[in-house]
C-alpha cells in the first residue's frame, strides 16, 4: 500500500483522538484518547521506517531500525505516563469524588 494511505489513516486516528479529548469530560476517557494519538504517531513511524528500509536496503541493511526503536521508546514513555496519570486520577477522585476534568480549574488562580 502506498505511504499516503498510512499517513491518512494516522491523521484520522489522531484527529479522532483530539476530538475525543475535546468533547469528553471524563478524565479516563481523555487519557485513552491520548493513547490513541500516541498510537497514531507510532503507526506512522513504523510505516516510514518500512518505507525507508525499502529505499535504502540495497546500501544499508539495517536502514529503518531507528524508527522502530523510537516506537519502542514511545511505548516506554506512554507506560510511564499512564501509571503516573492514573495515580493522579485516583487521587483526584479520592479528593473530589469525581473525575470530571472541569473540576480541575485551579489553573485560573
Amino acid at each position: 500500500m502506498p505511504i499516503n494511505y498510512y499517513i491518512f489513516l494516522s491523521l484520522a486516528l489522531f484527529a479522532i483522538g483530539i476530538v475525543g479529548v475535546l468533547i469528553r469530560r471524563n478524565a479516563i476517557i481523555v487519557f485513552m484518547c491520548i493513547e490513541i494519538m500516541l498510537n497514531a504517531a507510532n503507526l506512522l513511524l513504523v510505516a516510514f521506517s518500512k518505507m525507508h528500509h525499502l529505499q535504502q536496503a540495497a546500501t544499508q541493511a539495517s536502514a529503518g531500525t531507528d524508527g522502530q526503536i523510537f516506537v519502542f521508546f514511545i511505548m516506554v514513555v506512554a507506560a510511564a505516563e499512564v501509571s503516573v496519570g492514573l495515580a493522579i486520577i485516583v487521587m483526584m477522585f479520592r479528593n473530589v469524588h469525581s473525575i470530571d476534568i472541569n473540576f480541575l480549574n485551579r489553573l485560573k488562580h
Binding site: 502506498p2 505511504i3 491518512f8 491523521l11 489522531f14 518500512k50
Partner: peptide, 23 residues
C-alpha cells in the same frame, strides 16, 4: 476544530511522495 485539523493536514500532505507497496 478536530475536523478542520484533519482537513488541513490531509490537504497539506496529500501530495506526498507515493511509494507503492510498502506494506
Amino acid at each position: 476544530a478536530g475536523g478542520c485539523l484533519l482537513l488541513v493536514l490531509v490537504a497539506a500532505l496529500k501530495n506526498a511522495e507515493t511509494k507503492s507497496a510498502i506494506a
